[in-house]
Design a protein around this nucleic acid. Structure first.
Length: 1148
RNA sequence: GGGCUUGUAGCUCAGGUGGUUAGAGCGCUACACUGAUAAUGUAGAGGUCCGUGGUUCGAGUCCACGCAGGCCCA
């Protein structure tokens, strides 16, 4: 931007550099601490306590660089905080950093060139101590803080970065521990197990990312079994026996892991899958059987040659053992949901469950892609199995270990336990045996032995080898097992109903995320698995003895007391005692650390005199972030008052991907411990995609650099584009060209409008000092734009209040472009450059114009300031001249009294009529500079007539006609047209509507007159009234007519001599103005004109409009001479349509 | 595979409760304006409203089933 003319009231600019404007405003904010002020000025007094609006910042992780989507997310947050500030609320926003978690650990592993296995190993083996490793994590996690802070500043996100909460700080962890202890005391924190990938040979669980490493999945040939589960004849299963002629009924289930069959406790079917009962023979025992499997998979297991249409086909009787083709026939068909609850006999009854099991349940993961459409379910060896079994109340098959604890039937080495008598001590996977053992000719894998046993017992329908991909441990290269591993859980299911209830009080934007995605998630809640087997995170504050005595620690003080009391017992070893001492010393010195390994080296003594050690788990980082409402204030150890006044949050906003992340953890903790929501309003935002709709990724190179974007376009246009282009919850296809468009369209127009104002205001030394001309006394146009302005304020306020920044922004944009710039300013231009009365004072009209435009611009600056904070401040301060930031003002209050809907309607008619006239002129090549005598507007109602009369002068000047005339019905020259009003006719005539519509369209003019006169009209099918039709005029015979949307105008295109002369005069003025401009004359320079008289028509036209011309071009003289030759070098020739102007123009 | 979501002009998007002629901006074409001027205005062209069925006198809009993209979860 380049400022010209300094030392005037309103700064004028030659050009606009929006990025530079933002940078200057940022400096201003920082120098004047505007953000701090914006919070401070809303501080209440004892008599008038502050209205508070609480916002929670979802902490970003600073271990990566910020992307353009962060600009989007933070713009949303910023908008509503700024808006509420304008509304008079005090909005404190504490920043925060998410510092724990797997991504950070993985990054550190990568940078150190190590794997998880190296952590905690001695250096001599190439390892790194947990202490050093965590130190590295701590350094890494804040590495890009500077970049983040820089972005925060440059994009104009107001948040307190000086006192952020940091999740790795001791105070934060202590608060988290407090919360965990609260849960523990309410019996909402317990130790259970989950099914996880586990490598028996490595003796360790694998994380999902370890499972995703390349080469993990390998094709293997496994022995697979279709097992026959014998149905018990009960009321539930009766229908299966109805047609089975006393033969046994079996449900078929396929498994690629036969070793899990002794742990079977349920069969899972799909609710909507079709199943059939098939009569056939077992291929190994040749017994007649009836089996149940999915209809879609019949052909997978049965040979088409054996198909019998009839259940009683003689083929069944003719069947002999070992016949190649086994006959089969479909007996009946049933939906999966009707199989639910059917009971069956335990397949391999080695171990009895402690609750009823062995029945059919429903699961959403069942497919008919392969197998039999029935899934053999063993809750100890499958994650899906575990989940559906738990939901259906089916117990797992477990045995007791030596300490009395429930354990699965396969031990941690991959061996069957003693209870599985036939296979006790055998590895479940043949790959776990050594190569030598497998080389023995008599060696048989356990799966095969199981298959043989099943065949012999008439429990196997098919045994076959099958090749499929199976995950392997990347360390040992052996197949993994899905295996139950210890985990700590939060019993969210216990509070599910309350969480669902509380959710209904939250205002979700968009609503569907709350009712749908989040609501469904709550409805199907499972217990929250807190455990993570990692190093850098909040340690689980639970200590346990070998016999299961437990204590949960809820504060540093409690920890200290526990350690101290342990020191006074004689149970600890010397080493444990000295570790404890070391910790106590650090605690005393204040330089303690609640992370691993330090808390692992703290030992308690239980009531029964046993050593207690910390459970090695860390907690899910999501608990960290969900704990921020409390932990950010170190609640309840400090700041109880701050917490109490700022909980729950009024507003939060994050990406929709956080639904099950932050949104949930906030909600769960608040609901379970405080019986409250954590937030009242939430905006979940969509993704920022590239301009082709693809996900942005650094790898693909289509990621947009936020710093480059902000540098090129400035933050205001960038923010405005992001907000107004798509609603925040829709995905945004980010295209930088769109920012350019916003810049030209909105900011360019607005800047031009401001500059226009400044130019003339400075010339006239206008200075805004409130409304000196009462609005009621201002011209139509002023009252109209002020009315529009009030409507805009209401609209913007409503949209911001309902958390829709997109509609708020679009409303401002429409006002600026369509109403203010394109109509108000364009039509008012003349008022700004004329209008000085004889005594040199401004006329009231001009004063009104300045005041009106000024008010519109300052109000717009306020309305747009939440979205475009820098530019709005710049504009506001330019306009007010005061050194007061727009962000410290109060949101404008709409003045209802100024809203004149009648006037707004009138002006709309003026715009429509003008548009139609332009269209007509264009069609007849009559340019606007050629004056015409009149437009004719047919009006059927007095209202419309009055409304247009109001704005007739505006129409006349806009389309350059001498008059606006009306024709009404009485004139008799209108040709009317009638159209059916379907909305009214529909309910009345229903199916007959087509006939009615045809009859109405066919009405003659006489018919129409009768309808108008009597108010009703008889049709063959019934009576219609005036309300059932729409009557409009579309034509005036003999006139040039255009119509649109029920409005019709006719234009008198007859150009009289006078009109023609005036048109020529206008053209002449135009050419002179061009000339003035070419010669760089100043706006105030007076001139003399000498014109050669070379055409009579031209001369007549000039003479006839001499006064007008001289005034327009500020000519003190206008002489027509016979011949310009010889009058000097300044003579000019200009083409003007059919004329050739030869003239000389000089400064007077 | 499940839940949620999106699909309207070349591009980005509007289109309360169903009403017969589906809109805007950008881009494109033409013209105008030239005292807001690297600005501005006006007009025009441009559509299988993702598809198929259904409900209805009438569907971009309601219902069902699909197709394609996206997010989350398996």
């Amino acid at each position: 931007m380049h400022s010209i003319m300094s030392g005037v009231k309103y700064q004028q600019y030659e050009s606009f550099d929006y990025a530079k404007i933002a940078a200057e405003v940022l400096t201003y904010w920082n120098q004047n601490q505007v953000f701090e002020q914006s919070v401070a000025i809303r501080e209440g007094s004892p008599n008038a306590p502050a209205l508070r609006f609480t916002f929670f910042e979802g902490p970003p992780s600073a271990n990566g660089t910020p992307g353009i989507h962060h600009v989007m997310a933070r713009t949303i947050k910023d908008i509503f905080c700024r808006y509420k500030t304008l509304q008079g609320f005090q909005v404190e926003r504490k920043g925060g950093w998410d510092t724990h978690g797997l991504p950070i650990e993985l990054q550190v592993e990568k940078e150190l060139g190590i794997t998880k296995d190296h952590i905690g190993k001695p250096e001599s083996e190439g390892g790194i101590s947990v202490e050093d490793y965590n130190k590295k994590c701590r350094e890494t996690v804040m590495r890009f803080t500077d970049q983040w802070n820089d972005l925060t500043q440059k994009m104009g996100y107001w948040v307190d970065l000086d006192n952020p909460y940091v999740t790795y700080k001791n105070e934060y962890i202590e608060s988290v521990w407090y919360l965990l202890k609260q849960l523990y005391d309410k019996d909402l924190l317990y130790k259970g197990y989950t099914i996880q990938p586990y490598s028996p040979k490595a003796g360790t669980g694998l994380s999902s990312h370890e499972l995703n490493m390349p080469g993990t999945y390998k094709d293997v040939r496994d022995t697979t079994v279709v097992a026959q589960f014998k149905v018990k004849p009960t009321g539930k299963s009766g229908f299966l026996f109805f047609d089975s002629s006393d033969a046994d009924v079996y449900i078929l289930a396929w498994t690629t892991t036969p070793w899990t069959l002794p742990a079977n406790s349920a069969l899972t079917v799909g609710k909507d899958i079709d199943y059939v009962l098939v009569k056939t023979f077992n291929p190994y025992t040749f017994q007649l059987i009836h089996v149940v499997l999915a209809k879609a998979l019949v052909s997978r297991w049965f040979n088409e040659k054996g198909h019998q249409a009839d259940v009683n086909s003689p083929a069944f009787d003719a069947y002999l053992p070992n016949d190649k083709v086994i006959p089969w026939a479909v007996v009946s068909e049933v939906k999966g949901q009707h199989l639910e609850g059917v009971e069956y006999e335990q397949l391999l009854p080695y171990v009895q469950p402690d609750k009823p099991a062995f029945r059919v349940i429903l699961g959403d993961f069942v497919t008919t892609e392969d197998g039999t459409g029935v899934v053999h379910t063993s809750p100890t060896f499958g994650a899906d199995d575990f989940r559906v079994a738990q939901a259906a109340g089916i117990p797992p098959i477990m045995v007791k270990d030596e300490t009395g604890k429930d354990v699965p039937i396969v031990d941690k080495h991959g061996l069957f336990v003693d209870e599985i008598t036939d296979f006790a001590g055998r590895y479940v996977k043949e790959e776990y045996y050594s190569d030598e053992e497998r080389a023995d000719p008599d060696f048989k894998p356990t799966d095969v032995l199981i298959a043989i046993k099943l065949k012999e017992e008439n429990k196997a329908f098919r045994v076959e080898k099958y090749e499929h991909p199976y995950p392997h441990c990347w360390r040992t290269d052996k197949p993994i097992l899905y295996y139950p591993l210890d985990s700590w859980f939060i019993r969210t299911t216990a509070k599910k109903d309350r969480l669902v209830e509380l959710n209904k009080t939250i205002n979700w934007q968009p609503e569907s995320t709350g009712t749908g995605r989040f609501g469904n998630w709550l409805e199907n809640l499972v217990d929250w698995n807190l455990s993570r087997s990692r190093f850098w995170g909040t340690p689980l504050p639970i200590w346990r003895s070998e016999t299961g005595e437990e204590v949960c620690i809820g504060s540093v003080d409690e920890l200290k007391k526990r350690v101290q009391s342990a020191q006074s017992s004689d149970v600890l070893t010397d080493e444990q005692r000295s570790k404890n001492n070391a910790f106590l010393e650090k605690l005393g010195g204040g330089d303690y650390d609640l992370h691993r390994p330090y808390v692992d080296e703290v030992y308690f003594v239980s009531a029964s005199g046993r050593v207690m050690q910390r459970e090695s788990d860390l907690i899910d980082v999501w608990f960290d972030s969900g704990a921020m409402p409390y932990a950010q204030w170190h609640y309840p150890f400090e700041n109880q008052d701050v917490f109490n006044r700022s909980f729950p949050a009024d507003f939060i906003s994050e990406g929709v991907d956080q639904t099950r992340g932050w949104f949930f953890t906030l909600h769960a903790i608040a609901g379970m411990l405080f019986d409250s929501v954590a937030f009242k309003n939430v905006v979940s935002t969509g993704l920022v995609l590239d301009k082709n709709g693809n996900k942005m990724s650094k790898r693909l190179g289509n990621a947009v650099d936020p710093f480059a974007t902000l540098a090129q376009y400035g933050p205001d246009a960038t923010r405005w584009y992001m907000i107004t282009n798509a609603e925040p919850w829709d995905n945004l296809k980010f295209n930088t060209e769109g920012i350019g468009e916003v810049q030209r369209k909105l900011f360019g127009t607005l800047s031009n409008t401001y500059n226009f104002f400044a130019l003339y205001a400075n010339l006239d030394a206008f200075s805004f000092a409130g409304r000196s001309i009462p609005v009621a006394e201002r011209p139509e146009l002023d009252r109209w734009i002020l009315s529009k302005l009030q409507s805009l304020i209401l609209e913007v306020e409503e949209q911001f209040d309902s958390y829709n920044p997109t509609k708020a922004g679009r409303a401002v944009q429409d006002f600026v472009n369509d109403q203010l710039s394109n109509w108000y300013v364009r039509l008012s231009r003349r008022r700004f450059w004329s209008g000085v009365s004889s005594d040199g004072k401004m006329t009231a009209d001009k004063q009104a114009a300045y005041e009106t435009l000024h008010e519109c611009l300052t109000t717009v600056a306020q309305l747009m300031s939440p979205i475009a904070p820098f530019y709005a401040d710049w504009l506001y301060q330019n306009l007010t001249g005061a050194n007061t930031s727009v962000h410290l003002t109060n949101f404008p209050k709409a003045e209802q009294a100024l809203i004149d809907t009648e006037l707004e309607t009138s002006m709309e008619l003026a715009q429509d009529v003008s548009s139609l006239v332009h269209s007509l002129r264009k069609g007849h090549k009559l340019k606007v500079r050629q004056p015409l005598s009149r437009v004719l507007v047919p009006v059927l109602s007095a209202d419309t007539r009055r409304q247009i009369e109001h704005v007739a002068p505006i129409i006349m000047s806009e389309v350059n006609v001498k008059g606006v005339e009306f024709v009404d019905d009485a004139s008799g020259i209108l040709k009317k047209k009638v159209k059916p009003n379907f909305k009214a006719l529909g309910p009345k005539f229903g199916k007959q509507i087509k006939d009615v519509a045809a009859a109405i369209t066919a009405m003659s003019e006489d018919d129409l007159k009768q309808l108008e006169a009597s108010g009703s009209w008889q049709l063959p099918v019934g009576v219609i009234t005036l309300a059932d039709v729409e009557i409009l005029t579309e034509d005036i015979p003999g006139w040039l007519v255009a119509s649109e949307g029920g409005l019709t105008v006719a234009l008198d295109v007859n150009v009289t001599d006078e009109l023609r002369w005036e048109g020529i005069a206008r053209d002449f003025v135009n050419r002179i103005q061009n000339l003035r401009k070419d010669r760089d004359f100043s706006v105030t320079d007076k001139i003399t004109i000498v014109l050669e008289r070379n055409d009579d028509v031209l001369a007549t036209a000039i003479e006839a409009n001499r006064d007008y011309i001289q005034q327009e071009v500020q000519a003190v003289s206008l002489d027509l001479v016979g011949d310009l030759n010889g009058r000097g070098p300044l003579a000019t020739e200009i083409d003007m349509d059919e004329f050739q102007l030869r003239l000389q123009v000089d400064k007077a």
